[in-house]
Computed example of a mutant assay.
Amino acid sequence: MHIVVMTVEMSLPGCRSLKEKRQRMGGLHERFGRNPAVAVCESGALDRLETSEWTFVVAGIDGRRVEALCQEIEDKLQRTVDGRVLEVTREPL
């Protein structure tokens, strides 16, 4: 079993309220949480408007598939979130 904990920090320039932050980050649970190999949660910067931190736990039997899924998540975040990815850390368990 291969498990990777991936933490993504994103910048949300110009975000003026927690409501706007939720709208800009909206749907991450629904988009990624449907996959049974992925668990996702907002893990930091909960009350900071211009920053958002999310953690994804990706598990699978094949290490290459787990790595590919992590890359897919990162790519999709860069394409779909109204902000920019500042930092991505991956920690294998």
Rank of each mutant, 00 (worst) to 15 (best):
C70Q: 03
H2F: 07
R65M: 15
D75E: 13
L46I: 06
W54Y: 12
R48A: 15
V58R: 03
L93P: 01
M6C: 07
G26Y: 00
L12A: 08
P92R: 09
A68T: 13
L86F: 09
L86Y: 08
G14R: 09
S52N: 06
R84P: 00
M1Q: 04
V81H: 12
H29V: 08
L46S: 03
L46Y: 05
D82Y: 10
R22M: 01
R84V: 05
T7N: 14
G83Y: 03
L18G: 10
V8M: 02
R34L: 14
G26P: 01
I61Y: 13
G60C: 06
L77A: 07
P36M: 11
Q71D: 15
S52D: 04
R22N: 00
S11F: 11
R31A: 02
E74W: 10
R31P: 02
A59M: 13
E9A: 15
S52H: 04
P92A: 03
E72A: 15
G33Y: 00
V81S: 11
T7W: 08
F56W: 00
G83R: 02
I3R: 14
R64L: 10
I73A: 04
E72V: 04
A37Y: 00
A39M: 01
R16K: 12
E9F: 10
V81G: 12
D47M: 11
T89V: 13
V40D: 03
W54L: 09
I73H: 07
M25K: 04
R34W: 08
L93V: 13
L18C: 05
M6V: 05
A59D: 05
E87P: 00
V81C: 12
E30S: 08
P36T: 06
F56C: 00
D62I: 02
R16N: 06
C70W: 00
L18H: 04
R79P: 03
L28R: 01
M6D: 02
T7Q: 14
V85F: 01
R84A: 08
T7P: 09
E30Y: 00
N35T: 00
P36E: 06
D62M: 05
D47F: 13
W54M: 06
R48M: 13
V88Q: 10
S17W: 07
I61R: 15
T89Y: 04
E53I: 15
P36I: 11
R48W: 13
D82W: 08
D62V: 09
P13Q: 12
Q78C: 12
V57P: 03
E20A: 01
L12Q: 05
E53Q: 15
